[in-house]
């Protein structure tokens, strides 16, 4: 017997809130992408916990897709960040205000 589903939900909600805080408050492009990763991870925890709660493997399948989407997002996102850094010499999102 492990913990009730309620505690899994609370853990994931806390992690999601931490990730959202990181993505909103930090003014550093890499930390913003890290916050998005934390939020995706919290969603994955809920999916696996619900898969155990409902005795259904669909939740674990979704986590497989979340992993793939996270890898895609990070590779393209970091390429964009490196490109933006070479153009402006900064990680601060306030410096990316030109449309060219």
């Amino acid at each position: 017997m492990i913990a009730p589903f309620r505690d899994i939900l609370l853990l994931a909600a806390t992690l999601f809130a931490l990730g959202a805080f990181c993505a909103v408050v930090r003014r550093n492009l890499i930390m913003i992408v890290l916050g998005i990763e934390i939020m995706l991870n919290a969603a994955a925890i809920v999916f696996v916990g619900a898969s155990l709660h409902l005795n259904n493997l669909d939740g674990q399948t979704f986590v497989l897709f979340i992993l793939a989407v996270a890898a895609t997002e990070v590779s393209v996102g970091l390429a964009i960040i490196v490109y933006a850094f070479r153009r402006t010499g900064s990680f601060d999102p306030r410096h990316f205000n030109l449309l060219r």
Binding site: I2, P4, R6, Q60
Partner: peptide
């Protein structure tokens, strides 16, 4: 999360 029914009993160990 605290008021919903069925949330309080501990989950059984299962493995896929």
């Amino acid at each position: 999360a605290f008021r919903s029914p069925g949330m309080n009993e501990p989950l059984k160990m299962l493995s896929a």
